[in-house]
């Protein structure tokens, strides 16, 4: 692990300490700094070097789109639950994917589960098994808009 990662980790943990404690006197700050440095030093295991670094700026742009998807599908599931006839049609969907990195597949699975109406059950680096509650959410899944968004987040500038 490079010293740069160690310093970044220490700064991040120290910021979390300041947020959680809320005290700014010398005693608490020094204890927090030493604790953060110790934890960052204990966690110096080698990183997975084949994974590309996380594109944080484009990830922040992805989150509002995800939130809007969550709102839409939540309203859909709300309508289904409050319907007296309960018009559900659950099924298991095999979903092959060709996102390259494991991080992208994890983000895809987490987004699918976060969206009500679809839950990831099995996951591997090339295929996902998804349980969909009704026709609308499985159609939404088949359109692959979420996978395209995530591919844009990870590949648009990193590969060229």
């Amino acid at each position: 692990m490079s010293p740069r990662t160690l310093i970044l980790k220490t700064i991040g943990l120290f910021g979390l300490w300041i947020l959680l404690s809320g005290k700014l006197d010398a005693f608490h700050l020094s204890i927090g700094f030493f604790g953060a440095a110790l934890i960052a030093w204990i966690n110096t295991e080698p990183q997975h070097l084949d994974e590309p670094p996380l594109p944080l700026a484009r990830l922040v742009l992805y989150l509002p789109w995800l939130f809007w998807e969550v709102v839409k599908s939540s309203l859909n599931i709300t309508k289904i639950i409050l319907d007296p006839k309960l018009p559900i049609n659950p099924r298991l969907v095999q979903y092959p994917t060709n996102l390259g990195s494991n991080t992208a597949v994890v983000l895809l699975g987490n987004s699918i589960t976060l969206t009500p109406g679809t839950v990831t059950i099995e996951v591997s680096s090339s295929k996902l098994v998804i349980h969909a509650l009704d026709d609308e959410s499985s159609n939404e899944l088949e359109s692959r808009s979420m996978e395209q968004k995530i591919a844009e987040v990870f590949h648009s500038r990193g590969q060229t």
Partner: peptide, 22 residues
């Protein structure tokens, strides 16, 4: 209501998804 009405464990997890997010 969804956790009570829906038929099996997979469907119930969709109802819990609404709680977890919105």
């Amino acid at each position: 209501i969804g956790v009570i009405r829906l038929p099996d464990v997979f469907s119930r997890s969709h109802a819990l998804g609404i709680t977890d997010t919105l």
